[in-house]
């Protein structure tokens, strides 16, 4: 019972952070679209996953799509890696990877359990 309530609380927190991310990413996209000298540096990034359940992977993939700069393209056949398109990553994949590993994944794990 306590775990259930805790998970609901985590879900609410996930939604709050998600709304903030959605606003940030939309403003970012709006800036990229409306600035005349648009110079994006897109990059395809592979991200190793720690979540294992179907629900977890689905939530991570959907949240990645709606958070700043990133769009999920595919999940590997063994379900251990996500392929992500980052609009502004430039030369390095690390920042994108860390953002998912330390931001989105722990928040989803707290809701789904694994």
């Amino acid at each position: 019972m306590i775990t259930f309530l805790w998970r609901c609380l985590c879900l609410v927190w996930l939604l709050i952070v998600f709304m903030r991310d959605l606003v940030v990413s939309s403003v970012q996209v709006a800036r990229a679209v409306l600035s005349p000298g648009y110079a994006a540096k897109p990059r395809l990034v592979t991200i190793p996953l720690t979540v294992e359940s179907d629900a977890g992977i689905t939530m991570v993939a959907n949240l990645i799509t709606l958070t700043p700069g990133t769009l999920t393209v595919d999940v590997s056949a063994d379900r251990k890696t996500l392929l992500v398109h980052d609009l502004l990553a430039g030369d390095s994949s690390e920042a994108t990877r860390e953002g998912v590993r330390q931001g989105i994944e722990p928040r989803v794990l707290r809701v789904t359990g694994r």
Binding site: L22, S26, V29, V33, G69
Partner: peptide, 24 residues
């Protein structure tokens, strides 16, 4: 902005960025 982005950005993936985020 989502509409303009779909027209203006360079490839399918970038266009999907505009369509999903700004649109949502």
């Amino acid at each position: 902005v989502a509409g303009i982005g779909v027209v203006r950005l360079n490839d399918v993936f970038s266009r999907m960025h505009a369509a999903t985020k700004a649109g949502t």
